[in-house]
């Protein structure tokens, strides 16, 4: 009897983990693009996700009534934020040493985190109501529809992004820049414009993933810390490569997250996630699937 129960719980936990991983992939993809293509270290990536979650929260309670609709606005808003961030800050940092990039983006961390604190206060803002906040049963396994939706949208977006990077002219230029910026610039591509667009796309992905995460999770001003480290950990595991690499790494972290909090202790998940991160850095500094 215990065996059967445990089996069900294990499968249930794995299902949760797969869905988490699907969403994490989208959150990490923006970071990977920016780091890979423009070689920009954005330490504040998690804080931007946090901001996207707050904006989703704000839009849902004031305008849509349902966070599912919010990507209509968060994607363009965050593309705009990306463009502004690039013009205001990143542009000066592209050629700067990594230490300066980290320092400046840590400044953004301080700024955004406290801005959120000033505007939304520190208490967690719970996800606004979505019509998908219900679940279906598949035998003994429960599938929450809000998470399922987030996962499906995320995977679908990644497939499109993959096509974009493989097929479109801009996408190919971005991929090429990830390999060798000098060569791309010699071939007559305007790298400034390329980096600008990359930052915009990266942030648009952040906007979407923030909206998706917000359909089932609460946000606090310190949420950025969690997502920042988590997405960097995914990029570390994936190496700077492909959409597929990011996806595989995200699934691994999603599973680790879910198994740690489901089977061990909800308070221990950070130990597992970040411990895994440090181990990856030590043992596979180039990542599992990376080219660099």
């Amino acid at each position: 009897m215990v065996g059967v129960d445990f089996g069900v719980q294990l499968i249930q936990t794995i299902v949760f983990g797969l869905m988490l991983g699907g969403v994490y992939a989208l959150a990490a993809m923006g970071l990977s693009l920016l780091f890979g293509v423009a070689n920009l270290v954005n330490f504040a990536h998690g804080e931007y996700i946090m901001l996207a979650m707050y904006i989703t929260y704000f839009l849902s309670i004031s305008l849509f009534g349902d966070p599912v609709l919010s990507p209509i606005l968060t994607i363009p808003i965050f593309f705009g934020i990306g463009v502004l961030t690039y013009l205001g800050i990143f542009k000066r940092l592209v050629k700067a040493p990594p230490l300066s990039q980290i320092a400046a983006t840590v400044g953004i961390v301080v700024l955004l985190r406290n801005l959120a604190l000033a505007v939304w206060a520190a208490e967690p803002k719970a996800p606004p109501y979505t019509v998908f906040a219900t679940s279906v049963n598949v035998g003994p396994i429960i599938i929450p529809l809000d998470k399922l939706l987030a996962t499906v949208v995320s995977v679908f977006t990644l497939i499109i992004l993959n096509q974009f990077l493989e097929k479109s002219k801009l996408g190919i230029a971005m991929k090429a820049a990830a390999d060798d910026v000098e060569a791309v610039s010699l071939m007559g591509v305007d790298t400034g414009r390329l980096f600008l667009l990359t930052t915009g796309i990266s942030m648009a992905l952040v906007g979407l993933s923030g909206s998706l995460i917000m359909t089932y999770q609460a946000v606090t001003p310190t949420s950025g810390l969690l997502f920042g480290l988590l997405t960097w950990a995914i990029v570390a595991l994936a190496g700077l490569g492909t959409v597929k690499g990011i996806f595989a790494a995200s699934i691994i972290f999603g599973l680790a997250d879910s198994l740690a909090s489901g089977l061990w202790d909800a308070r221990g998940r950070e130990i597992v996630l970040y411990g895994l991160f440090i181990l990856i850095l030590w043992l596979r500094p180039k990542g599992l699937f990376g080219r660099r």
Binding site: F16, G262, D265, A266
Partner: peptide
């Protein structure tokens, strides 16, 4: 079942 004060996702708790 104990959970951390700053928990953001309750589903593992509900599952337990």
């Amino acid at each position: 079942i104990k959970y951390p004060t700053d928990i953001t996702d309750m589903s593992p708790i509900i599952e337990r």
